[in-house]
Simulated assay, not measured.
Amino acid sequence: MNDSSRGPWPQHLLLATDLCARCDRPLDRAKQLALEWQSELVILTVREGPRTPEEVASWLDRDGATQAFELAARRELDEEFQDSGVAPSLRVVEGDVTDGILDVAGAMEDALVVTGASSEDNFQQLILGSTAERLAQDLAHPLLVVRQRTRGPYQRILVANDFSSAARRALETAARLFPERRIVLFHVLEALAEPVAGAVQEALAASERFLDDCLLAPGARAHISTFIGHGSVRDTIARYALEQATQLVVLGVHPQSGLARMFMGSRSEELLQHLACDTLLLRSREDHDDG
C-alpha cells in the first residue's frame, strides 16, 4: 500500500523546457497536474554553450545574458500563471541538457519530470533521441512526455503489461497518481497474427494473477480492466490508443537494455515514435529486471 505519510502524489513537478512557443503543451499539462495534486512546480531551462559564431560574444558575457534571460522568463511566467493558483519557481542552469535535468531532479526526493517536443534539437530529442534514452535509463523519477493539448485531467489511461516488475511499477504508479480513472492493463500476444481463444484466455488469467500481486489502494482494482491484443506490440498499442482516444500510455522501462526494452522485447523508442498521446515512463527499481 501507499505510504500515507508522503501522500499519493509527487511533492514536486519539474518541467524541463526552453520556454519556446511549442512548449505550451507540456507547460499547460504541468500547470493542470500541479493544481490537481497541489504539488510544487519547478520550471527548469538549461542553457547550452554557443553553437554558432554569432552566439560566442553573448556567451562570453553569459552572466549578463543569463540575468537578462531569467528576468524575461520570470516576467513571462508571472503573466502565464497569474490567477492560476500555481506559483512556479524558475531554475536556469548551464551545460548539457540531460545532465542539467538529472542534477536538478536528483536533488528532489519526490518528483515527476515533465517535458515535451521543442523547436530546439536538444529538446526534440527528449522524445525521439539520445536524451530520452539517457533520461529513461538514469532518471529515478517518472518521466512524462507531453504531446497532446490539455483539456482537463487524464481520464483514459493504458498501462502496457509484460508481467515484469517494470510493468508492475507502471500500473501501481498509474493507479496511485490517477485514482478512480479508467485504466486498461494491456498485454500483446506478439507471436499471434490472429487471436486464438485458448491463448487469449490464458493471457487474461495471467493478467488477473498479475493484478493479484500488485499493491493497489482499496477499490482501485474496480477501475482497472484487462485487454489482450495480438500482432506487433508497437502497432497494436498505437492503434488501440488512437481508436480509444487514450490520453496517457504508461510504460515500464527495463534499465539493463538501452532505452526501455519493454514487454516482449519491444523497444520503447520505437513505440514512442508511433504514439500520438502523452507517455509516462517509469524505470524499474531493480538493477536486473525480470522482464
Rank of each mutant, 00 (worst) to 15 (best):
G265F: 01
D83F: 13
D110V: 07
E270C: 01
H230I: 00
L211C: 13
L248R: 02
L139S: 04
A241K: 00
A193P: 15
L44N: 03
L112H: 00
E48M: 08
L275G: 00
R168N: 06
S84A: 12
A16K: 00
I224G: 03
L271Q: 01
E286A: 04
Q82G: 05
E54K: 09
D235W: 03
A175G: 06
E133L: 10
R156Q: 14
Q124F: 13
G116A: 05
V93G: 08
A193I: 04
V196R: 14
D110I: 11
L251A: 00
E54A: 10
G291Y: 04
E79T: 10
D162C: 07
Q11N: 07
L14W: 07
V56K: 03
F81K: 10
W59F: 14
A68W: 08
L35C: 02
Q137T: 02
C277M: 06
L13W: 08
H230P: 10
F81W: 13
A238I: 02
G95L: 12
V196M: 12
E269N: 08
S5A: 15
A166D: 06
S89L: 11
A111N: 05
A73I: 02
R285T: 00
K31Y: 02
A238C: 05
A245C: 01
L189V: 00
P88N: 07
G116N: 05
R151Y: 07
A220R: 03
I43W: 06
L204W: 06
S225I: 09
V114S: 07
G116R: 04
E286S: 08
F163S: 04
H254T: 00
R182P: 11
A206G: 08
V146R: 07
R169F: 07
L282N: 03
G64Y: 11
T246C: 09
G95Q: 05
M264L: 06
D121Q: 12
S84Y: 11
R261S: 01
E208S: 12
P218Y: 10
T150L: 09
R75D: 15
D212R: 14
E190L: 01
R209I: 07
S130I: 09
H12L: 01
A205I: 03
H230N: 10
P153D: 06
A241L: 05
G7E: 13
C214H: 07
L216S: 05
S4M: 14
I157Y: 12
F186R: 05
F210W: 10
E76T: 08
A140K: 13
L272Q: 02
V104I: 15
Q247K: 00
F227H: 12
A68G: 06
L41P: 09
G252W: 01
A87I: 13
A16N: 01
R149W: 11
R47A: 10
P179I: 08
Q137C: 05
A217I: 08
A136W: 04
A160D: 04
G7K: 11
Q247F: 03
D121C: 03
E76P: 04
E180W: 09
C23S: 15
T17W: 13
R209F: 11
V42Q: 10
V104G: 04
M1N: 06
D103I: 03
D3Q: 08
S164W: 11
V200T: 14
D99E: 14
M1F: 11
Q32V: 00
V56M: 10
S257Y: 03
S268F: 03
D212L: 14
E80F: 15
A222Q: 15
N122S: 11
A220K: 10
S257Q: 04
